[in-house]
Computed example of a mutant assay.
Amino acid sequence: MKNVGTSPAGAAVEWAAEEPGSARQGAAPSAGDGRTRQLVARTVLEQGPVTAAGIAERLGLSPAAVRRHLDALVADGEAWIRESSSRGRRGRGRPAKLFLLTESGRARFGHAYDDLAVSALRFLAEQSGEQAIRSFAERRMAALVEHHREALAASGTVAERAQVLADALTREGYAASARTVGSGEQLCQHHCPVAHVAADFPQLCEAETEAFAEVLGTHVQRLATIANGDAACTTHVPHARSEDRTASRPETDHNAVASGSASRSPDRQDTAPSPHGGEPV
Rank of each mutant, 00 (worst) to 15 (best):
V118Q: 13
S261T: 08
L144R: 08
F212S: 02
C192R: 01
R24V: 13
E185F: 05
H254D: 13
A112M: 06
Q189E: 15
A120W: 06
L59N: 12
H276M: 04
H147L: 11
A65V: 01
F109I: 05
P250V: 01
V257S: 06
T51C: 06
S261D: 11
A52Y: 05
A159F: 03
H147F: 06
T170Y: 06
R68M: 13
A52W: 04
R222F: 02
G88W: 06
F201H: 09
S104L: 10
A107W: 09
I133S: 07
R171W: 03
V257E: 14
D244E: 09
D114C: 02
A143N: 15
G88V: 04
S84E: 12
S84D: 07
A107H: 08
E150Y: 07
E160F: 03
A232S: 10
P273K: 11
A27S: 14
S155C: 06
A178M: 03
H147M: 05
S259L: 13
G229L: 05
A56C: 11
E185C: 10
L45Q: 13
I133N: 03
A75R: 13
T218A: 11
G54K: 01
D114Y: 11
R171L: 04
S263Q: 13
V74Y: 02
E18L: 14
P238E: 12
Q25D: 14
G60M: 12
A142E: 11
T246K: 14
Q203V: 07
V237R: 07
P20I: 10
W15R: 14
F123M: 13
P273V: 11
A258S: 10
R245S: 09
L152I: 10
T170G: 04
T157W: 00
V257P: 00
F99M: 05
A79I: 02
F212H: 15
D33S: 11
A258D: 04
V44K: 06
R106H: 08
T271H: 02
A28W: 02
S265V: 03
S242A: 15
S86G: 07
A153D: 15
N255P: 02
G5L: 08
V4C: 00
A120E: 12
R42Q: 14
L187G: 08
V40L: 12
G93M: 00
F212C: 00
D115N: 10
L152E: 12
T102Y: 14
P202I: 01
R134D: 15
S265F: 07
H219S: 14
H254V: 01
Y174I: 01
D270M: 01
G5R: 04
R179Y: 03
H236Q: 12
P275A: 04
P63L: 11
L61C: 00
V118S: 06
E172D: 10
A247R: 15
G173A: 10
C205T: 09
Y174C: 08
P193N: 14
H111Y: 02
A65P: 00
G184I: 11
L144H: 06
P280L: 09
V237Q: 03
R89L: 01
S177M: 01
H236I: 08
P266S: 06
G260E: 15
R161F: 00
R58K: 11
G34M: 02
E14S: 00
C188I: 05
A107V: 03
D167Y: 07
A27D: 09
S22R: 05
S30V: 02
